[in-house]
Computed example of a mutant assay.
Amino acid sequence: MPTLSVPPIDVVALRSFLAAYGTDEMLADELPVAMSMASAYRLRTSQGARLLHLFDEGEAQQAAMVATLFLCLQGADIPCPNPVADHDGRLFGWLGGRSAILSACPAGRVLASHTAAHCARVGELLARLHRLAGQCVPVQTTGSTVREWRDIAPMLAPELAAADAALLRDEIRFQGLYRFSDLPQGLIHGDIAPEALLFDDGRLCGVLGLERARTDARLRDLAIATTACCSLADGSLDPERVLAMLEAYHAVVVLTPIERGAWPVMLRAAALQQWVRALQHEERADPSVAAAKARLLDRIAREGELQRLWP
């Protein structure tokens, strides 16, 4: 997942905001460090690691909904950030005219690569998350869709080589032929990336980015996570890691024949989503752009083989 630029925060305003939480110190060498999710900051305070989520002006209701979602997920043993209440018991406040949530950061660290055992932990966590549909209310209702890709493509095409512009156009057209509303639905993360997964000694002890959770086809989450965690350097998928993730998921939530049939197309959709994201937010020469394109080309070339990667 590309790293998004995050605007700086006024240090004086931030210190004033943190004072309402009984936190009056920050280590300047880690203030602030932008994470992979836009408008999210990691802070090291006198009370430990904290995450700061900032929302656009006028989105106080969204901040309240995110805090409620986090608490619900915490209650279901999903290791997401844990909102911290201020002195008045409020779970969100104001920083520079924008609503903000301060939360305790889950333990663990981001891994450069994942083993089959790590992928199994991701699959098991996604299954438990998907079962929460109807219990935890998402803030978002939609994610990356064909319509959104169609809107973005004309802005990207003039900057692309002719072959890449054609690839983007053709893959969006291909995805437009399919509808996934008949697939089993659930509460999904929707944007799993290596930067969102925190591990400690093989244990998955933190997942970030759930403020954008939504209800969608459960298979989309699996395809996105597979693309993020199971891809090899040449863009292809590691069968051992893919099967480890799917088998761990299947042990909690049974995968269905209709999902197996949609698996190759959904893997292509996940690779397309990653490539579009990289084209939007990275320089064309950035290695992440080429890597995302390679994954999409691999899924297209191997579409007939992808159903074999199924438990």
Rank of each mutant, 00 (worst) to 15 (best):
Thr3Glu: 13
Ile9Gly: 04
Val12Gln: 06
Tyr21Lys: 13
Asp24Leu: 08
Asp24Ala: 12
Met26Thr: 15
Leu27Thr: 11
Asp29Gly: 01
Pro32Arg: 00
Ser36Thr: 12
Tyr41Phe: 07
Tyr41Ser: 03
Arg42Glu: 15
Arg44Leu: 13
Leu51Ile: 15
Phe55Trp: 06
Glu57Ile: 07
Gln62Asp: 07
Ala63Gly: 10
Ala63Asn: 02
Ala64Trp: 00
Ala64Ile: 01
Ala64Pro: 08
Ala64Arg: 01
Met65Lys: 15
Val66Glu: 04
Val66Thr: 13
Val66Gly: 09
Thr68Trp: 02
Thr68Lys: 09
Leu71Phe: 07
Leu71Arg: 15
Gln74Asp: 03
Ala76Arg: 09
Ala76Thr: 00
Asp77Arg: 05
Asp77Ser: 15
Asp77Tyr: 00
Ile78Phe: 06
Pro79Trp: 04
Pro83Tyr: 13
Asp86Pro: 05
Asp88Ala: 15
Gly89Ala: 05
Arg90Cys: 10
Leu91Ala: 01
Leu91Ser: 10
Leu91Tyr: 15
Leu91Arg: 08
Gly93Tyr: 01
Arg98Phe: 00
Ala100Gln: 03
Ile101Lys: 03
Leu102Thr: 00
Cys105Glu: 12
Ala107His: 01
Gly108Lys: 12
Ala112Tyr: 01
Ala116Met: 12
Val122His: 03
Leu126Asp: 05
Ala127Tyr: 07
Leu129Trp: 01
His130Pro: 00
Leu132Lys: 01
Leu132Arg: 05
Ala133Gly: 02
Gln135Phe: 03
Val139Ala: 05
Gln140His: 12
Arg147Pro: 00
Arg150Ser: 06
Asp151Leu: 09
Ala153Gly: 08
Pro154Asn: 06
Leu156Lys: 01
Pro158Asn: 08
Pro158Ala: 06
Leu160Glu: 12
Ala161His: 11
Ala162Asn: 08
Ala162Lys: 14
Ala165Lys: 09
Glu171Gly: 05
Glu171Ala: 05
Arg173Tyr: 04
Phe174Arg: 15
Arg179Glu: 09
Asp182Lys: 10
Pro184Ser: 11
Gln185Thr: 04
Leu187Val: 07
His189Asp: 10
Gly190Gln: 02
Gly190Val: 07
Gly190Phe: 10
Ala193Thr: 10
Ala193His: 13
Ala193Leu: 01
Glu195Val: 14
Ala196His: 15
Leu197Phe: 13
Leu197Tyr: 13
Asp200Pro: 02
Arg203Glu: 14
Leu204Pro: 09
Cys205Met: 03
Val207Asp: 04
Gly209His: 06
Arg212Gln: 11
Asp216His: 05
Arg218Tyr: 08
Arg220Trp: 04
Leu222Glu: 07
Leu222Asn: 07
Ala225Asp: 10
Ala225Cys: 13
Cys230Ser: 14
Leu232Ala: 14
Ala233Glu: 14
Asp234Trp: 11
Gly235Cys: 08
Leu237Met: 14
Arg241Gln: 14
Leu246Cys: 03
Leu246Trp: 14
Glu247Phe: 02
Tyr249His: 15
Tyr249Gly: 15
Ala251Lys: 10
Val254Pro: 00
Val254His: 08
Ile258Ser: 14
Glu259Val: 11
Gly261Val: 03
Trp263Gly: 08
Ala269Tyr: 04
Ala270Pro: 02
Gln273Phe: 08
Gln273Leu: 09
Val276Tyr: 06
Val276Ala: 03
Ala278Asp: 02
Ala278Glu: 03
Glu283Arg: 12
Arg284Ser: 11
Ala291Ile: 11
Arg295Ile: 11
Arg295Trp: 09
Asp298Ile: 00
Leu306Pro: 14
Leu306Tyr: 06
Gln307Phe: 01
Arg308Leu: 12
Trp310Phe: 14
Trp310Gln: 04
Pro311Ala: 04
